[in-house]
Design a protein around this nucleic acid. Structure first.
Lengths: 154, 154
DNA sequence: CGGAAATAGGACCAAGCGCGTCCGATTTGA
DNA sequence: TCAAATCGGACGCGCTTGGTCCTATTTCCG
């Protein structure tokens, strides 16, 4: 199913809501009620997004979170990397030399790299704004209909 | 990490080994020793591949498995679908209407479709033969670097 | 100046499921 | 008739994910 974690899914929803709000700064409880998601989960999502530099947190009373950059400048790959680490399909790629009991026997050593790069490229080409379908008020909105991602010919 | 299951990874390795063998039919225990993978696991992988129609099983003594079609005609998407179901990044897409407690609130309803299609297309364009990196005859390691798989423009 | 509100950063526990294993039934060649 | 192999399912351990909560820190408002 290639599924990404549920937190990542939530993050996209939360970011989309943040983008369409009027106020620049919004609190985690407020975002929770507006998205319909449980409040502690939304808080956790926002904390991770803040660590990744995608949102910026403002502490103290009347604090909250604001987007560090417009939704159009946040790629889907950024969000996925923040929640799931580097994008790769197999576990063989992230420094686990010696895990495979038979590296010399493995016929696909290093062959996954172009595949991973392709997936990465595809995910980097999609912005959260495109996923949300409505840019808040950018000077030049990219497109209303999703363009074919510049991947392989369909 | 977007990781696919370990069984899927094994399947690619097993298929690659089957493609480079001389005999058309090979037994699960034989494939296990040749890949260095545990024998029950290889048997399970082969069973799933047989259900998906990627390999064909021959029962009885001197039986085994053979490729239903050449490796070049087996796409990576075929293998992934066999082991992990339909390729989709989120759980919202496979008929779970009503799971999300707030579909009307969700700003990304249906927006994942182009993303999923792009991933699917990319994975369909890659054959197991390309992952194995060697057409028919394996005297030694033919090439060190992989060719760019005709995927995305980098 | 004090209290309230909110983020920051952990730790913690429960549930789900991936994954390896094994068993019996069936088929087929020697 | 026996042996070898696939086929189909069930079972249980273990890791990862997820949701929750607690405490410290910061900052605005009365």
């Amino acid at each position: 199913m290639l599924r990404l974690s549920r937190l990542t899914d939530y993050a996209v929803v939360v970011l989309a809501r943040m983008g369409e709000a009027g106020a620049p700064t919004q609190s985690a409880p407020g975002l929770a009620t507006r998205t319909g998601l449980p409040e502690p989960t939304v808080a956790k999502v926002l904390k991770i997004l803040a660590q990744a530099g995608i949102v910026a947190g403002q502490r103290g009373a009347r604090g909250g979170y604001r987007l560090a950059r417009p939704l159009a400048a946040i790629s889907l790959a950024d969000v996925i990397v923040a929640f799931e680490g580097p994008i790769a399909l197999t576990a063989c790629v992230d420094g686990h030399t010696g895990v495979c009991e038979s590296e010399s026997l493995c016929p696909v050593r290093g062959r996954w790299d172009p595949v991973n790069r392709a997936i990465r490229t595809a995910l980097s080409a999609i912005s959260v704004a495109e996923l949300a379908g409505r840019p808040p008020a950018p000077p030049a909105r990219p497109a209303e209909d999703a363009h074919p991602l510049s991947l392989a010919a369909e």
